[in-house]
Amino acid sequence: TEIRININGVTIHVRDASEELKKLIEHLLRLGADEKEIREVLHRWEK
């Protein structure tokens, strides 16, 4: 699944996002995570 996240005008594009990762990101956004925090989570997730 491919997702695009727009945070304050900055688009983060994620290829091959699992449903689990998608739910995690949606949850973090609801909690008010910023772009830097989302990128950090994505970076750690890929490892």
Rank of each mutant, 00 (worst) to 15 (best):
R44H: 15
L42M: 03
T1Q: 12
V14P: 01
D16L: 04
T1P: 05
V10P: 01
H43E: 15
E35W: 06
R39H: 09
K23E: 10
G32T: 02
E35C: 05
E46M: 09
R30M: 09
T11C: 09
I5G: 01
V41H: 06
L42H: 00
K47S: 15
L28I: 09
G32P: 03
L28V: 08
W45P: 01
E46S: 04
I38P: 00
A33N: 03
L28G: 01
K47C: 15
L42F: 03
L42T: 01
E2M: 07
I25E: 00
E37M: 12
E20Y: 07
I12K: 00
H43C: 05
L29Q: 05
L42K: 01
E40F: 04
L24T: 10
I5D: 01
A33Y: 06
K23R: 12
L21W: 02
L28D: 00
H13Y: 11
G32S: 05
H43D: 15
L29N: 03
E26W: 13
V41Y: 04
L42P: 00
W45A: 02
T1E: 11
L31V: 13
H13D: 06
A33P: 03
L24V: 13
L31F: 10
V41F: 15
L28F: 09
D34H: 07
E37L: 13
E26A: 10
A33E: 03
S18W: 03
I5W: 03
E2Y: 06
A17I: 07
E37W: 13
E40D: 09
R39M: 08
D34F: 04
G32A: 04
R15D: 09
E19D: 11
E20A: 09
K23F: 15
I12V: 07
E26L: 12
I3G: 02
I25R: 00
W45T: 01
A33C: 06
K23G: 11
H43F: 07
K23C: 06
K23S: 15
R4L: 15
L29H: 05
K23T: 14
R30H: 13
L42C: 04
I5Q: 01
E35R: 02
A33I: 06
I3M: 08
H43A: 15
N6Q: 13
N8V: 04
I5C: 04
E26V: 12
H13M: 10
R15S: 12
K36C: 03
R39L: 09
K23Q: 14
E20Q: 09
K23W: 12
K22A: 12
E20M: 06
R15K: 14
R30P: 02
V41Q: 08
W45M: 02
T11W: 07
S18N: 10
E2W: 04
I5K: 00
V14A: 02
N6Y: 11
R4N: 12
N8Q: 07
I3S: 01
H13Q: 11
K22E: 10
R30C: 02
V10H: 12
I38E: 00
R44Y: 14
R4K: 11
R44F: 11
L24C: 07
W45I: 03
G32M: 03
E20T: 09
V41M: 11
H13N: 07
L31C: 08
I25N: 00
D34W: 03
V14G: 01
L24K: 07
I12G: 00
R39W: 05
I7S: 03
I7C: 06
